[in-house]
């Protein structure tokens, strides 16, 4: 009931279709910070230049009641067209891209390349003493890969955050 404390926290991936107008991202982020909701990851870019639609994918967590609030609060923002909870409205594909820079020589360098190979990461830049790997996959897989690179000379990581889309023929 009103007592959020006793409810379990869940993670959700929510897709929000918005008008690509100035301030719309600030509005969404301000909503989360102003109301104390969590943002685990947030990505945004224009997906339909003709109609000026942008798509925001936000991974958030909270009790079921809070999650309902988050969706209702997003939905009432004036420039929002659609809010879709991809975690519960049927199966969805979630992907994230990471660029991972590893510096080193000798044994460690060889080992990093070997692991990258197992994870199907691509080398997008290299020199005698560094690699940049590009890797796409579920966030957890990226986490594991980055963890493994830690002792091998990890110097920099850049991640996109999750993008997601529902499976099947239907659109948002």
């Amino acid at each position: 009931m009103a007592n959020h404390k006793t409810q379990v926290t869940e993670s959700r991936t929510i897709a929000v279709l918005v008008d690509n107008e100035p301030g719309v991202l600030a509005r969404v982020i301000g909503l989360f910070s102003g109301r104390g909701y969590n943002i685990e990851s947030l990505t945004v870019t224009e997906v339909d230049p003709r109609q000026r639609f942008s798509r925001i994918t936000v991974v958030t967590s909270g009790t079921p009641q809070i999650l309902e609030q988050i969706k209702a609060q997003l939905d009432r923002l004036v420039p929002v067209h659609r809010v879709s909870d991809l975690s519960i409205e049927g199966p969805a594909v979630e992907r994230e891209l990471a660029l991972v820079k590893v510096a080193g020589t000798g044994e460690k360098r060889v080992e990093s390349l070997r692991i990258a190979d197992i994870f199907r990461a691509r080398v997008v830049d290299s020199s005698h003493d560094h690699f940049i790997f590009e890797m796409t996959g579920k966030s957890e897989k990226l986490d594991v890969f980055i963890d493994l690179m830690q002792p091998l000379g990890l110097v920099d990581v850049s991640r996109t955050g999750v993008v997601a889309i529902s499976r099947g023929p239907q659109g948002l």
Binding site: A2, Q65, Q69, A72, Q73, D75, R76
Partner: peptide
């Protein structure tokens, strides 16, 4: 306003 419902 759906956000007023089940808020408190």
């Amino acid at each position: 306003d759906a956000s007023s419902i089940n808020k408190n």
